[in-house]
Structures are given as C-alpha cells and as structure tokens.
Design a protein around this nucleic acid. Structure first.
Length: 206
DNA sequence: AGTTCGATCGCCT
DNA sequence: GGCGATCGAACTG
C-alpha cells in the first residue's frame, strides 16, 4: 500500500507521448481513447480511468457555450492543450482540448489510477484514506499532481514536465457510459466514460 | 458595480 | 444525505 506501481523512468521508457493528431478529433472519440492513457506531471503519473466529453456552443453544460472569452479562449484554440479552471473557488479542474483549431471541445479528466509519485500525492492529500481515494475526482487528482491554473494552455504533445503517454503494452479495457456528473443543463447526455470495474473511479453509476 | 452560481470536496448528522 | 467553504466568470442593470 502507498507504493508506486512502477518507477517513472521505466514508464517513460516503455511509452510514447500522444501527438496533436490524437486530440484533433471529435471530443467524444478523444474522451473514450484517453481511458487507459497516462498523465505525467513533474514527478507524478496516473492512468486515466474516468472522463467526460464537453462539446461546442450547442452543449449548454460546456464553458465553450459562452463563446470565446478570456477564460474559454484555449478551448477554441489548437488541440492537445491543457484547459485548467477554478471551480467552486477552491479546486482546479483539468481538461484536454480536442477538435481542430477554431472548433471548441474538450475532455474533463475525472479520475486516475495513481502510478508514480504516490507518497508525494499522499502528502498533498492527507484526507485520502486509501490509494483509491487519491485521484478519484477532478479536484482530487489536480491537488495530488499539483496541476493548477498555471498549467492552463500548456502544450501536452511536446516533451516537458506535463505530457500524456501511451503504454507500449496497452491492456484492452471495457468502457461504461453514463450521464455527466454535477451539471444541470444537458443533464441527460451520455458523455461520461469510465473503465468498467475500476476501483479508482469517482462513482460506479449515475 | 452588484449578484448569482458553478464540470467539488470533506466533514457533519 | 446535507451543507459550508471560497472565488471569479458571466450576466444584469
């Protein structure tokens, strides 16, 4: 318990960075394909087990529905960038921008299976009682990995402190679908995707 | 310029 | 299951 699943050096060696083409597709496709991929931020890393897709101006639950503003500008820009915003005055939420440059769409990262830097994550989130609680929510995983609004706009397709990787040996996984959590508009749209049976997701059902 | 309310979390009952 | 914390973007006037 509370030990890393693998050393960061080995993870780096046995994986490759997702390129811009991966993100330059419809947000729903990118969302589903991000399951099983690994986010690396500085000394911490985790496997994505739960995401939600947010679409363009037609999706009233999406920030992009407000049009281009100072906050949403990155959503309308090139794919493969991080969109990080403050929610409820205290938590940062991480998204990756999808769709071609000029079109809005993104994927909210809702839960991770911690892989590297677990003791560090634990120090940042003392409230977590089990490793399963470390990154089981959008505000939890940013706290555990120290991802903040300073990372907003970061290009995660080029080598650096913040990237998303694909393992050379990717386990096949079954995907469950549900409605998105915590929203009121477009509440019945089935745009939440998570790894079936994972104990690291924020919730099992709606 | 003032108000509203949210893509949450953790503690309380 | 309920609620308070805490802040800034978006909307109203």
């Amino acid at each position: 318990m509370w030990k890393d699943a693998m050393p960061l050096a080995r993870l780096t060696e046995q994986s490759s960075i997702l390129d811009q083409g991966f993100y330059c597709r419809p947000a729903v496709e990118v969302a589903k394909d991000l399951l099983g991929k690994v986010i690396v931020h500085a000394r911490t890393a985790g496997r994505i087990v739960e995401v939600e897709a947010y679409l363009g101006v037609s999706d009233l639950a999406a920030h992009a529905s407000a049009g281009v503003t100072a906050r949403t500008r990155v959503l309308f820009g090139p794919p493969g960038r991080a969109y990080v915003y403050l929610i409820y005055g205290m938590y940062d939420c991480l998204n990756f921008v999808a769709e071609p440059d000029g079109e809005a769409g993104c994927v909210l990262i809702r839960a991770l299976e911690p892989l590297c830097g677990i003791p560090l994550m634990r120090r940042r989130r003392p409230a977590a009682r089990r490793p399963e609680d470390l990154c089981s929510g959008p505000g939890k995983l940013t706290a555990a990995m120290a991802i903040t609004r300073a990372d907003n706009g970061a290009n995660v397709t080029v080598p650096g402190k913040f990237v998303v990787r694909r393992l050379a040996e990717e386990a096949s996984l079954e995907i469950d679908t549900s409605t998105r959590i915590g929203i009121t508009r477009c509440a019945d749209w089935p745009l939440r995707f998570f790894v079936s049976g994972s104990s690291f997701v924020s919730r099992r059902a709606d």
